[in-house]
């Protein structure tokens, strides 16, 4: 789809996408197999592997199309998780 100029190499990595609202686990298949975890504060985290930037944007587009308010997108490093909040 879109060409990436610069940026990180297109190696698979894991991401966490946090949304406002409690999403039924039924949506797992819809979100390409991401695991869904709901928290007590009424937010939902989608976690899982994302092939490349295009795949990440595809997921965010699905979030947008459901009208779900997006809270944060965080790359998950397997050993040292760090949070980048948008």
């Amino acid at each position: 789809m879109t060409k990436t100029t610069g940026g990180p190499p297109p190696s698979p990595s894991r991401y966490e996408i946090r949304l406002r609202g409690r999403l039924d686990p039924r949506w797992t298949a819809w979100f390409d197999g991401m695991t869904l975890t709901t928290a007590d504060d009424g937010t939902t985290a989608l976690r899982g592997p994302v092939t490349d930037q295009a795949a990440l944007h595809g997921l965010l587009q699905k979030v947008r199309d459901l009208g779900l308010p997006l809270l944060s997108v965080t790359p998950l490093d397997a050993e040292h998780p760090r949070t980048v909040t948008t």
Binding site: R26, W27, T28, A29, W30, K62, D65, L66, G67
Partner: peptide, 17 residues
């Protein structure tokens, strides 16, 4: 309606993969 279609489709994927 787009939103309704997405909900239905997600259910289909979950219930009758």
């Amino acid at each position: 309606h787009h939103l309704f279609a997405d909900v239905l489709h997600a259910r289909l994927l979950a219930e009758q993969p």
